[in-house]
Structure formats: C-alpha cells, structure tokens
Write a protein that binds this DNA or RNA. Structure first.
Length: 570
DNA sequence: GCCGTTTTCGGCCCGACTGTTTTCAGTCG
C-alpha cells in the first residue's frame, strides 16, 4: 500500500461527499487530511499512527487504517452506493458545482453526461428553480465541449501565450503596471488558465483594449474588476483572466491571485490571529484602517516572514521551513550546457559567449552533441578538437568570462560512451545523456546510466529522465536508484531548465536532498539562456539550497573544480 | 471531520461574478 493510494482514496471520498451534499467543512477535512499525508516527507511504512499528523483525527484515521489493513474502504463503498459515478465528470463543467449537480440528480434523475445533455435539449433543466434558459444553454454548450477542451496546458505552451499577452499589454498606455499571477507565476508544470493583474486608474479604457485583443475566441465574463476571455494559441483555446485594480492595491492583488489557495489560507490565518483581515485590497486592521504596501516583500514582512518566491507558494509548508539559503536566480554564475552551430545550435560560439557575458555570467561551458547523434549533427573527434582550439582562442579574447570546452556526449544503446577516455581527457567538462533507445527495459537503461556515472570524466547527467512535459514520459529510469548511483560516484544531476523538460523535476530533488545538482538551459539559441528562471524555480519547488548547485560557484572556485576536482569521482 | 494557553463547542478564508433573485445562492479562484 502506497501513500499515493491513500491520498487518492481520501480525495475520492471528498468528491463523493461533496456530490452527496455533505457539510463542506467535513469534505475539506478529507482534503486536508490527504494533503497532510502528501506534505509529510516520510514514506507510509515509517508512519505508524496517522492521527499524529495535523488534520487527521479519529474519523479519517479509521478510514485510513481500514484501507491499509484490508485494502478496502466501507466509507467509500457506502458513498458509491448512494452517489452515481457518472456525476463526477459533471464537476468539470464550468458553472456546475456539487449543489447544482445534486439538484439535477434528485429532481431529474440525471446521472451522466449524456442524460444531462438530453435533459437540456428537452428543456427540462430550465424548469427547475434556480436554473433558467440561460443556465440551460450554458450547460448544454459546456457538456458538448466536455472532453474536447483540455483541462490543463503544459508550462511551455502557457509561457508562449503569456509572451504574446505581455507584448499586447505593454502597448496599452492606460496600464500602470501588470504581471502574470496564478499557477504560471508559481511555475507549475501545467496550468488551467493564465491570470494577469493589471493596475490602472482608467479601467474602462483598459477593459475596451482587452476586448480588442486579436486572438480572442470568446468572452466568458466581463466585470468591473475581472475580465475572462478565451484566447487561441498554438491550435488551442486557453482561458485568460485579467484583474483590474487601482495602483494602490496592486501588490496585494498580485499576492492574492498568485496563490496558491493553500498558501493564502495560511496567510489569512496569520491575519486572523492578529485580528486583521487580508484580501486582494490590502490588510484591514481591527480599527478598520486599511494598510496597502507597495511591494510583496512588505506584505510578507508584515506577517514576520521573508518574501517567499512564487515557486514555493504551494501547500503552506513553506511557512514552516527555513528558506534563507534557498537558491535564487542571481546565485547562478554560469551556464554549463549549451549548443552552437557546430551541432544543432543556431548561433556561433562567439555569439553564445557574448550572450553569456550579457547575462553577467562568470563562466560557461560549450557542450555540443557527440558523433553518434547524427540527427543533431554530432561532432566527430576531429571537429570536437577543432572546436576545442576555437574555444581556447575565444577564451584569450574575452577576459570577462571563462569559456570551457565540453561535450554533451551520448550514452549509446549498448551502454558504451560515444568517445574514448583519451578524447574525453582533452575536454574541460563532460556531460553524458541519453538521446536514443528510450524503449529499452529499465534494467538496460540503468546499466547505461551506471556506466556513465562510473566514468571518471563524466561530470554530470543531462535531463536525467528524458521526459517532455505533456508529450512523452521519457525513458523512465529507476530514479531513486539513479540518485543513489549519482551520490556514490560524485556525479552531478541536471535540472534542465528548458520549460519543455524541467528534468529532474521538483519532486525528485526534494526527495533526494543529498544529490548535487546543476541547473542549465541547454540553449540552442541565445534567447534560450533566459530559461534559467524555470530551472531555478524548479529547484525552489524542491527547496534546494544553493550549496547543492554547482553553477553557483564563484569564478575561482569553478576553475578549481574544473582543474582539480575531477579526482573527486570514485 | 478537525481543532483548541481565551475555547471540548463553534468555528473553519474572502470577495467577485453570474444568473437568478427581489436580497441571494452557487460557483470560482
């Protein structure tokens, strides 16, 4: 029995209870219990008494114990007898919540998506009190669209749409300032929609301008403070909420709508303890006076904590941790993984050097693809050595930065590495990576990774799972074992910062606090150097301290690491 | 259902928008 199974059970019970019309606090008690289990770092075997966890008392404790011991839950079974399973997908319909669904079921016997569609088409729904023609019409549309529209979009797609919106908003003069909020600002791997906070003294003008945004597909809700649209992007239709707020309340609104929900609940509880009320408009004190700060940092300081980076604002546990040494973007002093026109990059070495200097980096490593990766124009030994010479010349030319010669070397399907040790010995920095034969059995994949870890020249493993978010799962290594191997051999694991990858993910780096990390953009274009913030955010989600990250070293220490630390490998 | 150095009962975060009301419930974030 795994913890995940119990979490799933509790969440399922919560959904059924919700549809049954149980007391909302009882429902959320089950959700809180699930979350408390999820937040606890220990595996299930190490938790003897679940009721020791905050939010799990006698009632939920018994449900969990029954499930642990007997693999079944009489509580869930009883609920399933009462509530038809066909009601659950209806919760996804915009505008339909548990109460309305319960009413549809009780009064019309609607127990599935199809039954709901038929009832709408027959005009039965609008005969119920609380429902009318407009509601019926909206439900009908939503039922038909159910399944057609995705409920979450990968971060890389959201990021693309967000850039388009950014450039549109920056042209609107009536806007004082704006920022993205919500789950995208928190760097979640996927988001349901995008939220924007816009400060303005002239909401009417901004509202008009927003309604004229070119890729608008649908107006969902138009209010004074909130405008919800659906925009088309990349063959998808993605929801975007714009919140308009006067400048004095801007940072409170930004904080509020950045969330997460649980993060905000913790803040509101802190407020309540002081007899204050915090909302998107400010902090209302007991005497009715409204405090409005002009930065997020001041809002957090008001409650006795330092500013918490959005990526870490998740389940509320961030308030209980020491965050002082957590990695920040400006701790990164160099990018160790990037490509040039020698293989499949779009820019020359010198262009990349200039771009890295522009970023303020103190060192960088050029790591093109190796000879076997023909599709990416991998380098023969001769090309590699020629590139090596070119890098030395550039290194002499640019004093501002240390340029190291490296390679992103393929780990071949048979487990061998793509160059001999004699060749690797001539490079400053060797990355190993899997780019082919993803479908091998896990055992063989692990053999390949083990060979790479054990090689004395391999410093780090790039994108260790090979996943592409929302597209492919990767080659699915035994990640716990890989982390052990990396630790035992002093091999560094990468957080690939490309928003398509984010690999390793936050969960893994959080679970394995002893592995050393490096965060790199894998840039194939000078613009890709900007991906670093996604990698840093991923590390923050894993509560990674900067000491764990090799490319936070100073210029001198990194030089020392390149020249002397290779012997650290066992 | 959970929780508690004011509480073992009475709270549990707060506000906007919609559609239906004729002062508000339901939904959403």
């Amino acid at each position: 029995m795994s913890k995940k199974e119990i979490i799933k059970l509790l969440e399922k019970i919560a959904v059924y209870m919700e549809l049954k019309g149980e007391n909302t606090f009882k429902v959320s008690a089950y959700r809180k219990a699930a979350q408390s289990l999820e937040t606890d770092e220990r595996p299930l075997d190490e938790i003897d008494d679940v009721t020791e966890l905050k939010g799990i008392g006698k009632g939920v404790g018994e449900v969990i114990n029954e499930y642990r011991e007997q693999g079944k839950s009489t509580t869930l079974e009883a609920l399933q007898d009462e509530v038809p399973a066909g009601l659950i997908p209806l919760l996804k319909i915009q505008g339909l919540g548990s109460k309305k669904i319960a009413k549809l079921y009780k009064e019309l016997g609607i127990d599935s998506k199809d039954a709901l569609q038929q009832a709408c088409e027959a005009g039965k729904v609008s005969e119920l009190s609380g429902f009318a023609k407009k509601t019926e019409q909206n439900i009908l549309e939503a039922v038909k669209a159910l399944g057609a529209k995705k409920d979450r979009y990968p971060i890389d797609q959201i990021a693309g749409l967000s850039l388009e919106i950014d450039s549109y908003l920056s042209e609107i003069e009536a806007i004082d300032q704006f920022n993205v909020a919500g789950s995208f600002r928190r760097f979640k791997e996927s988001s349901k929609d995008i939220d924007y906070i816009i400060s303005t003294d002239d909401p009417e003008t901004v509202q008009q301008a927003l309604l004229e945004i070119p890729n608008k597909v649908k107006e969902v809700a138009i209010g004074h403070t909130k405008i919800s649209l659906e925009l088309s992007y990349d063959d998808e239709t993605i929801g975007v909420d714009f919140r308009l707020i006067e400048p004095s309340a801007y940072y409170h609104t930004l904080q509020h709508f950045t969330g997460s929900k649980d993060h905000n609940i913790r803040i509101r509880q802190l407020a309540k303890e002081r007899n204050e009320k915090i909302s998107e408009y400010g902090i209302e004190q007991q005497n009715g006076e409204l405090i409005q700060y002009q930065s997020e940092a001041e809002i957090y300081e008001h409650y006795g904590v330092n500013w918490i980076a959005p990526a870490m604002r998740e389940d509320g546990s961030e308030f209980d941790k020491s965050l002082t040494n957590i990695l920040q973007l400006d701790d990164i002093n160099g990018d160790l993984h990037m490509h040039t026109t020698f293989s499949d990059g779009a820019f020359s070495i010198e262009d990349m050097v200039k771009a890295n200097i522009e970023k303020g980096y103190q060192y960088m490593v050029i790591t093109d693809h190796s000879q076997s990766l023909k599709v990416a124009n991998g380098l023969s030994v001769e090309q590699l050595l020629r590139q090596n010479e070119e890098i030395k010349t550039l290194n002499d030319k640019y004093d501002e930065i240390d340029i190291y010669s490296g390679i992103e070397m393929d780990i071949l399907p048979n487990g061998e590495l793509d160059y001999s040790d004699e060749v690797l010995a001539q490079l400053d920095y060797v990355i190993a990576a899997i780019h082919q034969s993803f479908n091998q059995p896990q055992e063989e994949i692990m053999k390949r990774l083990e060979n790479a870890c054990k090689n004395p020249y391999v410093r780090h493993i790039a994108h260790p799972t090979g996943r592409i978010i929302g597209k492919r799962p990767g080659y699915e290594p035994d990640i716990d074992k890989l982390c052990e191997m990396a630790e035992a051999t002093n091999t560094i694991l990468e957080i690939n910062a490309n928003p398509k990858r984010l690999d390793l993910n936050a969960e893994v780096v959080r679970k394995h606090p002893n592995i050393r990390l490096t965060i790199n953009t894998d840039a194939h274009h000078v613009d890709h150097l900007e991906f670093m913030e996604y990698g840093v955010a991923t590390a923050q989600k894993g509560f990674v301290h900067k000491e764990r990250v090799i490319n936070t070293l100073s210029r001198e220490d990194f030089k020392d690491f390149i020249e002397n630390n290779i012997k650290l490998k066992k």
